[in-house]
């Protein structure tokens, strides 16, 4: 299935406590039984990957409609961070049922965002 997430803020940079707004669109003819949009931060680098779902919007009537607007409110923390052994990344993800046997769901689309009071990532590897 093809799906796309488009943010209202085209540079994908948002301040903490701000709002992430946009439109998610999909092909209703090939839509699965359910879709869910999530505001998520996750860690990358050394150590066990950590994923925190901060907000969820279950999408209904996905075989009738072909798009939907959404709005999430960000928390104060954490900021987007690119450090030496650790990164913290934010994104808006679209999930649906997985076609694989032992997997319940899979990511169908993602839109990375930068969450920072300066609108720039924090950390040593911020460039």
């Amino acid at each position: 299935m093809t799906a796309a997430i488009t943010l209202r803020n085209s540079d994908n940079r948002v301040k903490p406590n701000g709002r992430v707004e946009g439109v998610v669109s999909w092909d209703p003819a090939r839509a699965p039984a359910w879709l869910e949009l999530r505001l998520v931060w996750h860690t990358e680098g050394k150590g066990t990957r950590e994923v925190m779902v901060v907000g969820r919007v279950p999408l209904t009537d996905v075989r009738v409609a072909n798009q939907r607007t959404f709005s999430f409110t960000l928390p104060a923390m954490p900021y987007t961070y690119h450090g030496r052994i650790l990164s913290i990344m934010w994104s808006v993800d679209l999930f649906g049922p997985s076609r694989r046997l032992l997997q319940r769901e899979e990511q169908l689309a993602t839109q990375p965002i930068v969450v920072s009071p300066t609108l720039q990532p924090f950390g040593d590897r911020r460039e």
């Binding site: 860690t43 150590g47 066990t48 954490p78 961070y81 650790l86 913290i88 924090f122 950390g123």
Partner: peptide, 9 residues
């Protein structure tokens, strides 16, 4: 970067 405490980071 402010203090941050996750489960693994």
């Amino acid at each position: 970067m402010p203090s941050f405490s996750g489960k693994h980071a």
